[in-house]
Each structure stands twice: as structure tokens, then as C-alpha cells.
Design a protein around this nucleic acid. Structure first.
Lengths: 120, 120
DNA sequence: GCAATATGACACTAAATGGTTTCATATACA
DNA sequence: TGTATATGAAACCATTTAGTGTCATATTGC
């Protein structure tokens, strides 16, 4: 059912789909960058973006579902904030993933090198 | 036109959209994992996946467009391979991105800490 | 030349995405 | 109380995505 999974670190596939998809849109990355400077309300976030507030709201929802941001409702204001734990989680996964890849590729490269050496 | 961009490292937004979108699908990640073990032809890649060859072919196209894999046509066989340079490029970008975020967030945390200390 | 193989191209469908506009709701404040 | 503000919800639309099946094309090997 799941060929080719790389063993070790378990990071749910659904989770990865959600997080990577959330990151795969420049507007959402822009929002995250803004939130790295500190929490902000939806209106503040939408203001500099050439887009309806509703659209921005939807993007925030995507980020929220991927647990990349949190939202606390404070009166009529919704305050959004980055969730650093999740970022770390993602980064740790990515490092592992890359490690897995490069390890394999290095092995391949060594193999190729040996092949050439034998030829020479 | 581009508020909130984080300065420094320039990694085209289009490029990021493409790469992250390519990664944001478990089938494509599976394909990459398989390719980390060495180059393979389309048929080999499609075989263990419960999906039409045509569908797999499309996923490969997405990966190719994001320049995560290369394809060399060898007779009637299309041989695909991971492109490690691009992976490194991506990883470097991600590290910078995370660095930017955590730096800002750490500054925020220190600020909050100071605030509490003053209160106490 | 002919049959089998490896693959892409094309046309189609269902569902998701990224937007929009309009309306509802809750809160703040004069 | 009444009005302005902050926001979500719902309905809608165009485009893209992720699949499918069928057909075309090029290559290999008898």
C-alpha cells in the first residue's frame, strides 16, 4: 500500500501534503513572512495584499489547517500567529528527507566513481 | 507589488511554487524516494503504484517541470533521475527561510521575556 | 516486415483551488 | 440605541489538478 516510504521518522503523509501545499503559494508564504514579524489581525494581513479580504481569509484558513499558524479570537478581532513548533517539525522532516536522498545519491556517486576507476 | 518578501537569498517565486507544489503530493514524493535509489524508467516507476501509467507519467512531468528530476530518452526508454543540485538548492532555500522565521520569533520571545521581567 | 514494447498525446470527467460578490454576525463605541 | 468595524459563511465562477481510457508513434527484435 505504501511502497518506497523511507523508514524512520514518521510524519503523516496527510500532514505533509497539507503543509507543503500550504507553503506552495506565494501569497501564503508572504503571510507567513509577515507573521514572522509578530502576530497580526486578519485586516492587517490583508491590507497590503492586492486581493479581497475574503480571499486572504481563505489563505489563512489553509495555513491554519496545516497548523502553520494559530488564531485567537479577541473580541471582534482575529489575531493570527506563527506556530514555531510546527515549523521546527517541518524543518526536521525536511532535513531527514534530504539526508535520506543525499545519502543514497552519494552511494550512487561512489559506485559510479568505482566503476570509472576500474575502467581506467 | 511584493510586500513582505524576505530579503537576501533570491529564489524565484515561480520556482518555489513549482517545487513545493511538486513535493506536496504523496505519489510524487514516493517517486522521488524511489529515484533516490537510482535512475529508473517510467514503467519501473509506475509498476508498484496503483495507478495508470498515464497518471504516473503526468506526475513525472510535474517533477520534471520543477526540475526535481531529469529525463533522458534512450531508444524507446525514458530514464528518469533525481537532480541533486536542485535538491540542494531547495534545501538551502528552506534553511534560509526557517532561519529568517526563527530569528524573528526568537527576537519576539526575548521581547516577551523582557516584558515579563519588567512586570515582575 | 511484423508484433510486442515503452511511452506520449489527446479528449474527457470529477473534484479542488483561487478568486469574486453578497449577506450575516458579533463587537465596539458615540 | 444605532452605526461603523472585523470577520466568517455561502453561493458562484473559472482554472487547474488528478485521474481515466483510447490512440498514435517510435523502437526493438524475430
Amino acid at each position: 500500500m505504501q511502497p518506497f516510504t523511507h523508514g524512520g521518522r514518521r510524519f503523516d503523509d496527510d500532514r505533509l501534503d497539507a503543509v507543503l501545499h500550504a507553503l506552495a503559494h506565494r501569497t501564503r508564504r508572504m503571510l507567513l513572512n509577515r507573521l514572522a514579524a509578530g502576530p497580526a489581525m486578519v485586516g492587517e494581513l490583508a491590507e497590503p495584499i492586492d486581493m479581497t479580504r475574503v480571499a486572504v481569509s481563505k489563505h489563512l484558513r489553509v495555513l491554519e489547517n496545516a497548523r502553520l499558524i494559530s488564531r485567537t479570537i479577541d473580541g471582534r478581532v482575529h489575531r493570527c500567529a506563527l506556530r514555531p513548533e510546527v515549523l521546527q517539525e517541518v524543518e526536521r522532516w525536511l532535513a531527514g528527507y534530504r539526508e535520506f536522498w543525499t545519502e543514497k545519491l552519494n552511494a550512487l556517486a561512489r559506485f559510479a566513481e568505482d566503476g570509472n576507476r576500474n575502467k581506467a
